[in-house]
């Protein structure tokens, strides 16, 4: 049966908390299941689980830490029931990673997301095209490699290089912003 409805103020609090932390919660789930579509589903299931347990949430404690703990269990169940747990992290490590994903401040998380499109815009045209082809069109890396006459490992290597360039760009951008505001 559906859970008993919560008072309006609790519903509003739940919506606000989930909305505020959705980016890091989704990233944590994505890091555990590694497939974007799976992450979508696990996130949905996590949101339902959080709602069902929201009456046990202590608002004096971190919502994000609490939500990450629930997401960890949902992701583990998801991977286990689909026999995809051979290449997953141990429960101990996923618990340790909660701290790492919860560590950035809301401001820092927001700054990083804001920096991303600016860093993408700085990439050479060929790199942007490869990102577009592999991410935006959802084309399989092997198919992209075949079309380009390259090996899949070569395309993977290019994507890794681009990702690292973007990561370094974001780190520098956020660091500059932090220095500018202190």
């Amino acid at each position: 049966m559906d859970p008993d409805p919560l008072p309006a103020d609790r519903r509003a609090l739940f919506a606000e908390c989930l909305h505020a932390h959705r980016g890091r919660l989704f990233a944590y789930v994505h890091a555990l299941v590694r497939n974007l579509a799976d992450a979508d589903d696990v996130f949905q299931l996590t949101a339902l689980a959080l709602w069902r347990r929201f009456d046990t949430y202590d608002p004096t404690r971190s919502f994000l830490n609490w939500a990450l703990g629930v997401a960890r269990l949902e992701a583990a169940t998801w991977l286990r029931t689909r026999a995809r747990d051979r290449l997953r992290f141990s429960d101990d490590l996923t618990e340790l990673l909660i701290e790492a994903f919860a560590a950035p401040t809301d401001r820092e998380a927001s700054d990083r997301r804001d920096a991303l499109p600016r860093c993408v815009a700085k990439l050479p045209g060929g790199d942007r095209e490869l990102l577009h082809e592999c991410y935006q069109t959802g084309t399989d890396v092997a198919a992209v490699a075949a079309r380009l006459g390259r090996s899949p490992s070569s395309v993977h290597n290019s994507l890794r290089r681009i990702r690292r360039v973007l990561f370094e760009c974001i780190e520098r951008t956020v660091a500059r912003g932090a220095r500018g505001t202190t």
């Binding site: 974007l36 990102l131 577009h132 974001i170």
Partner: peptide, 20 residues
């Protein structure tokens, strides 16, 4: 772990920004 979390966050943000 901190590096992993930041890098994975970038990976996800990139996927969410670009992946259709």
């Amino acid at each position: 772990r901190t590096h992993f979390a930041r890098y994975a966050q970038t990976h996800t943000d990139l996927a969410l920004d670009l992946a259709a």
